[in-house]
Structure formats: C-alpha cells, structure tokens
Design a protein around this nucleic acid. Structure first.
Lengths: 341, 341
DNA sequence: GAGAAAGTATCAATCGTTTGCATGATAGCG
DNA sequence: CGCTATCATGCAAACGATTGATACTTTCTC
C-alpha cells in the first residue's frame, strides 16, 4: 500500500540497503547516488515506516510523560499543562515525540508504564511527580530504564536524575516573610503526605518557625489533595478553632483559590484578617482577589530542563546522574499584610 | 536482551505462532496449551514488543492529538488540557495510547502530522481546532486518514466526522439575553477570522441583532487571538469611541479575562458600566471579579465524544461519517446587568 | 473399521527497516 | 602488468511479532 524503501530502491536502481544508508546520510554512499535516491524518494513521496525502523534499531525517538495517576484530575491543575508545554518545546527542538499517560488509577498507570517500557514504545520517561515508595519509580529503577524525575526523590537521591526547585528554601523564605510581617499563628496547608514536595515545604516552614522560636502547632498543619475543594475544607477547619491562624502558607495555587473562596463565604477578609502565601505562580494567582503572593517555581523551565536531561541521557548512555535545581522567585502581591494589633 | 515470543515458545514447548495465538486468545488453541503458555509467559516476565506487533498488524493502538500549531501557546488556554482530559479518559477506557503534537509553527506541525500518518505512528487523529483551508486537514482528507474534528468543518461538512457545539445558537441566545437586558450597543470580540468557531459565533450574534432590528456596527466587531492580551487591546479600542458599547459578547474566557483586567485599569465598572458575556466556562470564569456569565460548552464532553467517534471509526472501517453536537448551557453569573438609563 | 469432520498445533512468509559482511570495480604502486 | 588498497554497493540476516496454509491427531458416523 504505502511506498516502502524497496520501491524507492527499485526506482533508483539500487539496493534497499543503499536507500537506507542514504536516509541516514552514510558517507559510504557517493553523492551521485545519494542525489538519485533522494530524487526517487521525492517522486514517490516516500516516508519511512517508524515501526519498522524502531523494530530494527530498538529505539523510538519518543519520550513518555507520566502524570500522577489519574491524569483526569491532574490536568485540572494548570501545573501539568505548563510543564508539558516546556517538555513539548524541548521535544520539538530535538525531534522527539511525546507520549502522555492517560491516567486512571494507580494500577492502570503502572500498567501503562509497563506497556511503555516493555513494549518499547518510548526511549525514556519523565515522571511528573515524586512520592514516597512510588511503585512506578521503583520499577523504573529496577529495570534500569532511563527516566528523569520532576521533583526530589524520596531516597536514593544520588542515583536518580531529577529536576526540582529548592522547595525547602522557598518555603522557609516565604514563612520568614510572614514572620517578619508579625505573624505568629501561621498554618501550613500542603498536599498529601506521601508527596515529597509536601514534606519539603513543610520542612522549610518548620525550620523558619523554629528559627524564630515559634512553637509548632500540629493543629495548624493540614494535608490534602492539591485541589480547590481541599482549600475550602481546610479553611473551615482552621477557622473553627478558638484561636485561628492569622496567616496560611499554602503549598499550591489551586488550593489557595479554594482558600480564598471559602474565606469570602465565611466573611473573613484577606489580607485584612488573614494573610495567605502560595506556591507555583499559576496565571490564576494574578487574577484572584486578592492577587496571591506566591513562589514562582518556573514550571515551564522545570519542563524544559527535565526533557533536556532525559534526552542527553538517551543520547549518551554513560551520561552521569544529574541534579538540576531551577531557581524560584517570590512574587509579592496583595494577599499578605503586616499584622497590626 | 528482552524476552521474546520465541523464548516463551521454547519454554512451553510450542511454536512461536502458538504463543501469538494464545496472546490473542485464539479459539484454535486448546485450553490446556493456553494455560501452559500463559504460565511460561508469567515465569519469564514476557511482554510483547509493540513495535514488532505494530509492524506486523499495521496498527498501533495509538491516537494522535493535534493542537493548533504552537501547542506552546495553546496549552496556555485551559481549553486544551480540558479536552485532552476527556480524550485521555476515553483512550484509557479503550486501551489506546495518546500521542500529542508538540507544537511549533505551521510547518513543523504539518511535518509532525506527516510523521504520524506516514510513519504509522498512530491509527487515527483528533484535530483540536477547525479553520478555513487548514493544510493539515486537507492533507488528512486527501490521504483518507481516519480523523475527527473538534469544531465544525469549514466545508465538506458531510464528509467529515466532527464534534461541536451549536455555536450559532449559543451565540444567538447569549446575544438575545443581552438584548433583553436592554442593551443595543453590543460589541463582538472573537478569535481570528479563519477559525470556524469565530465565524459561527459571529453569525449567531448577527442573527440576534437582526431579529431585534438592531443595526450591525462593524466597528463593534473585533477579531484577534484567543489570548488575554487580545482582550485588553480590544477594550482599549472599543472605549476610544465616542459611543462605546454597553455590552460585549466575548468568544473566549481567556479573552474575557483580559477584557475585565483592562476595564478595571480604565476605571470602567463591570457590570455597572458594561456587561460582558463569554464562552467556554473555564473554571477561571467563576473566580474573576465579577464572575462571568458564560456559555458552558462542555469541553470535557467534546473530548470524550471526539475520542469515542474516532475509536468507533478505527474499529469499524465502514463506520459512517458522523456529526455529534454537544449541548451547551448558559451559566448566568455576575458580569451582566440590565441597562437602566 | 474406513473415511470424513473437527480440533490442534506448526510452517513459513510477511511487515519495512538496519547493518555486518561480501563483492566488484577502480585506482595506486613499484 | 600484477597486486593490493580504497571506495561504492549489494546480499542477506536480523528485529519480534502475525497469520494463511498445511499437517497431524482424534473423534465421530454409518
């Protein structure tokens, strides 16, 4: 049906192998022949069959992107499209294709990864999250399959290439900012505890409090999904206390959005009654009322760097394990205020 | 290196072809043999090589998703992640994988599609936009490659399977709503003119105005990209007129966001001074101030339906050409007001 | 108990490339 | 002029599956 390398060979009066070598621009073929073959390819509208090629060379020029299981809900957080954007742009530049996991639950996700790996569908994988004892990551490590992590590994740090922000520092800086504004009852609202990013940011928070000699109130530490609804729930809880916090350090902009909504419904003013700081600097953090003081973690760059690291690794099998720390920057906006009492 | 069908065959004392038939659960193989082969597969940790399989059966169980060229900027509009979410969920359910275009300019996008099609990378394609004389779509039609369009084709409507809303009706309804509120100076802010969705919504707008005997003022019709910045520019222009509009029908929520921002900067109150209606019902339309009255076009469902139609077509070659109209629903919020003068 | 039918499993060709090795032609050398 | 480098190309075997044709057993039927 489709035109194959043999058709081209016949037309150009050479062997299929010669055509193949022309395609890869092998110096063993004379320029004259190359020209002739190229012309034949042109005329026949030849395009190589990727499957056959992949089969022969055992590679695919494709990279797999794995979202937290249930891309379903992940894609609702603009973090993922944004990092995908970075990855895509790098992939484009280097001629790689992108395979994205389609979600489902943990088991399905794992199955899909296996399909990618065993099935030779992709040459490498980018994992868009890092959590404790993640079966997928363990699997990749065990299989020695090339992959890059966006986030910090829970353990075996020195054996895994990863791209991350310095979340501890960022969180610490942000907390210090709140402390400087006079806040002492500061709550922390993070993602689920198995996520490394959650614990890192919690660490930074605790470090800052300790340094300022502020006791840590476990009731002020809440963990839940990175969703709007979680933000709402958390606020309800925090403001049921007799002494509610005067500031909340939220680990994700989507969550902050929920926080703001709920505060408004409860008639609590932000930043007058409570200050909020956030993470990620999604574009929505500019449009909320009030606009959010948030850490710009440079999501796009996380995407670029992870793709770059992976591709380098794919091109050179002996590429060393790397750690890339993408700088963050705090965006000061209108959701915080000095405490004056 | 990896374990192949032959290894399994040897271990189970059968021919490779038998193993293959066990995999596809062919009734020609006895249950006893099946059991034995499955056990061998299990023990060896066998996983089929997708490339080999694809090569042999000339199919890939993968579908390609094409964003408007430059996924780079598209991904900034939550419309695309959301429709991707729908597609992904359907793909997951049916065991298909997802290949997404990585953007770039028109030429690169076209190249990528060719690679997908000629290279046998995907079985079918979902095109996430519809515009006039799109070379990619023309190419797919010419090659008779299975694809589904999200949006309405510019022409050859009866030959192309597509999934869309009734944008003309939606726009008409929305315009009528504004007219009922007493507005007569209503502006239309749409996407670039080559997009069919833009012209459809413009048609609805015009129909409603004509029906109400309101003359159409060409100065009130502006076209630009579906971006925040375009919204801002448009407002600047509209309010430089001596008689600015009292209502604006905006064809995209991201644009509306820009409109709202600019209005605020100019000190024009919404909805007091000007009413705004929008399209898409992105989650951000709820969080803007004021929240947007917008058409919920059910993006997720667009994704689901398009994937479903494509997959049906892939499974049955003679599946008829289809049109799927996803219902819309107007969400009334706070960006419109009755004109009282 | 012979022949047909049904049920199983194998053989071998095929999918479209890549690539190590062999081969034939040309040129260079003394 | 004969012999060896050098260069350009072709041959054929992978890569790891699928599948139509074929062969071998059983089982059934009369």
């Amino acid at each position: 049906m489709a035109v194959t390398i043999k058709d081209v060979a016949k037309k150009a009066n050479v062997a299929p192998s010669t055509v193949s070598r022309v395609i890869s621009d092998n110096p063993r073929i004379s320029d004259a022949t190359k020209k002739r073959v190229r012309k034949a390819m042109e005329e026949l509208g030849y395009h190589p069959n990727v499957n056959a090629r992949n089969l022969a060379i055992r590679s695919t020029q494709a990279i797999g992107v794995i979202m937290p299981s249930s891309a379903e809900t992940s894609l609702q957080n603009p973090f993922f499209p944004e990092v995908l954007r970075g990855i895509g742009s790098m992939a484009l530049e280097t001629g790689y294709s992108l395979y994205v996991s389609t979600g489902g639950d943990d088991t399905q996700s794992f199955e899909e990864v296996k399909r990618m790996v065993y099935g030779n569908r992709v040459d490498g994988i980018i994992l868009l999250y890092s959590r404790r004892n993640d079966p997928i990551m363990n699997f990749l490590v065990k299989e020695k399959f090339p992959f890059v992590l966006v986030g910090k590994p829970y353990k075996k740090e020195s054996q895994i290439t990863y791209v991350d922000n310095d979340n501890i520092q960022a969180s610490k800086k942000m907390t210090e900012h709140l402390i400087e504004l006079g806040h002492r009852r500061i709550a922390y609202l993070g993602g689920t505890t198995d996520l490394v990013v959650t614990t890192d940011r919690l660490d930074g928070y605790k470090q800052a409090l300790s340094a300022a000699n502020i006791p840590i109130n476990e009731k002020f530490i809440i963990h839940d999904e990175f969703l709007r609804s979680s933000g709402r729930k958390a606020v309800e809880k925090l403001f049921s206390f007799s002494e509610p916090p005067t500031a909340i350090l939220v680990a994700d902009d989507m969550m902050s959005l929920g926080v703001i909504n709920m505060l408004e419904e409860l008639g609590i003013e932000c930043p007058e009654d409570v200050s909020i700081t956030s993470f990620n600097n999604l574009y929505l953090s500019e449009i909320t009322r009030p606009s959010l003081t948030t850490v710009d973690i440079n999501i796009y760059s996380l995407g670029i760097q992870s793709a770059k690291s992976l591709i380098e690794r794919l091109k050179a099998k002996d590429e060393p394990v790397k750690r890339v720390i993408v700088p963050f920057e705090i965006k000061y906006r209108n959701s915080t205020r000095a405490l004056t009492e």
